Amino acid sequence: MMNSVSLKSPAKINLMLSVHGPRGDGFHALTSVVVALDFGDSLQVRLITGPQDQLNCNEPLVPTGEQNLIIQAAQAFRARCGQAVYFEFQLEKQVPMGAGLGGGVVMPQSH
């Protein structure tokens, strides 16, 4: 059984972005047209024995606690599947924070 996976999160440029009203979860609904670039962040995900998820990042300004969307996604996954599985994440930032090149689209890395 495989216990780790590498994911790429390419930088992107918004060709069009419309921000709509807030959703029930506190985020805003968006409509956008984006183009993925040839570089971006990478995320290594590994199964671990709990009792909590771990997020490490090469960029010290990235929050690694429960306010991080990666940790929130792991918590939502656990709640949805009903399994006590925990993860260690290693985020390698290449996309500068606040540069307008958000790397929010996560795609599996092909081998």
Results as ranks from 00 to 15, higher is better:
P63V: 05
F87C: 12
D38W: 01
A73Y: 00
A36R: 05
V45A: 11
A73F: 11
G50Y: 09
N58V: 05
L7V: 11
L61A: 15
E66Q: 14
G104A: 07
V62K: 03
S18D: 12
R78Y: 11
V95D: 01
I70R: 11
L55D: 06
I70L: 15
E66H: 12
N3Y: 05
G103K: 06
P63C: 03
F89G: 07
L15Q: 06
G40Q: 02
R23N: 12
A74D: 09
F39S: 00
F39I: 03
A74H: 04
S18Q: 13
Q94N: 15
C81M: 14
T49P: 11
G65P: 04
R78N: 11
N68P: 13
S18P: 00
G50F: 01
P22Q: 03
P51V: 00
G24I: 10
H20A: 08
K8D: 05
Q72L: 10
G104C: 08
S32N: 02
Y86V: 10
L37G: 08
D38T: 10
H28N: 14
F27Y: 15
A11M: 03
N56P: 03
L43Q: 09
I13E: 08
G21D: 15
G21P: 09
H111M: 05
G104L: 06
Q52F: 12
V33F: 07
I13N: 01
L101P: 04
Q90N: 15
L69M: 13
N68E: 10
V45N: 01
M16D: 13
A84Y: 00
A99K: 00
E59T: 02
M2R: 09
V45F: 04
